[in-house]
Design a protein around this nucleic acid. Structure first.
Lengths: 198, 198
DNA sequence: TAATATTGACTAAATAAGCAGTCAACTTGA
DNA sequence: TCAAGTTGACTGCTTATTTAGTCAATATTA
């Protein structure tokens, strides 16, 4: 779903190379274990060059988080497809993180999300991104209601639960086995068919 | 819901004092910012005393995580109450983390959960705990089906989604505002009434 | 009983490794 | 030639952990 080689594929400069190295070091060592030296190990040039392109470690990570959240937002961008089909696509995208790469991406995002309690800048970025995604979901559901394929009174509330399940599954990817996630998916499909679909 | 003063209330020794100090330092500084010195700041005695009671920082944190997960497991212990009422209690417990203390507890747990990707011992603890909780939820739902108050074909799948929502809300407590959580709760109640209740 | 070991809780100071960040010098391309 | 990119060596600080020892209480023995 999310492909690093396309995510960082248009590498057109040292700054992007640094971001890419930071991403891989984050996936490998986690936020708590991340150091400039370890980022440098994923980077062809000297690690001190990082400070020529970024003020400090914090601003580098903040930049990376911005990139990553943009990627996630594109997953739920309102498309021209019929809302009834589109909701199925989103459900599949949420639950089927088959590629190990996409899973590493999701894990890294969750790890950064966990930092929001102690980093106001992260908090603000996640808050904006979550609000954007919830509004997109609301629009999709509302469009479905208008076309008669969905039947809900409060699209905002349906979108809120949708997002809770989305974030829940992202977090569960850390520990849950594929079977448990499949069971959760089956039940969520039942909810979509029973409570959303007209 | 979770009360620290009772959690660490039966302080009966230095080891428990250290655990308490570690908990507060974790809430204040987060996992990445946690140091022995900062734990010592929440501890009356010398920080070097920590090494008299624990082998190292890792084993101390592992011990704390064990305590915390035990607390969470007691939240969903199968009780003698009617399953129909009990499921409402659990839903309320999940969504209404009003006390700032309980919220700090939940945030700390999520932060430790995010470490599972890079710490196998954490991974194992969370995996066991999640399995236990899911089995409890399955039992409650199954009991409700037997008594005729619930009507579901696959209690395991309902429990899996229940847990996804539980973990999702725990994660959202980091960033989501109370209104959004309330909206998610309203929709989840609708799901319980429509898809679970007979 | 009185002197002497032995223990466990505890501490301040030291250690060695690792950390983020700096800097002066060198290279490169326009 | 000049600005931007790049480098390795370096600095001061923080880290987890160890060391070497104090102290009070208890156990042992004469």
């Amino acid at each position: 779903m999310i492909d690093e080689t396309s995510f960082f594929g248009d590498i057109s400069g040292t700054r992007e190379e640094i971001l890419e190295a930071t991403y891989y070091a984050l996936c490998e060592h986690g936020y708590a274990g991340l150091t400039i030296k370890k980022i440098g190990a994923h980077f062809d040039k000297s690690q001190s060059l990082i400070y020529h392109h970024y003020d400090n470690k914090d601003s580098l990570l903040l930049d990376l988080l911005g990139y990553m959240l943009e990627q996630i937002e594109q997953q739920v961008l309102f498309s021209k497809e019929p809302p009834g089909d589109y909701i199925d696509i989103v459900v599949n995208e949420i639950f089927d993180e088959t590629e190990s790469q996409g899973c590493a991406f999701t894990q890294a995002v969750i790890e950064l999300r966990a930092q929001t309690a102690h980093n106001e800048e992260y908090y603000e970025l996640f808050r904006r991104s979550d609000n954007f995604i919830r509004k997109q979901l609301t629009q999709i559901i509302r469009a479905g209601v208008n076309k008669g394929v969905f039947d809900v009174d409060e699209p905002k509330e349906s979108a809120a639960l949708f997002q809770t399940v989305l974030i829940g599954i992202q977090t569960e990817y850390l520990t849950a086995d594929t079977q448990t996630i499949a069971e959760s998916k089956a039940e969520f499909r039942r909810y979509v068919e029973t409570c959303l679909r007209a």
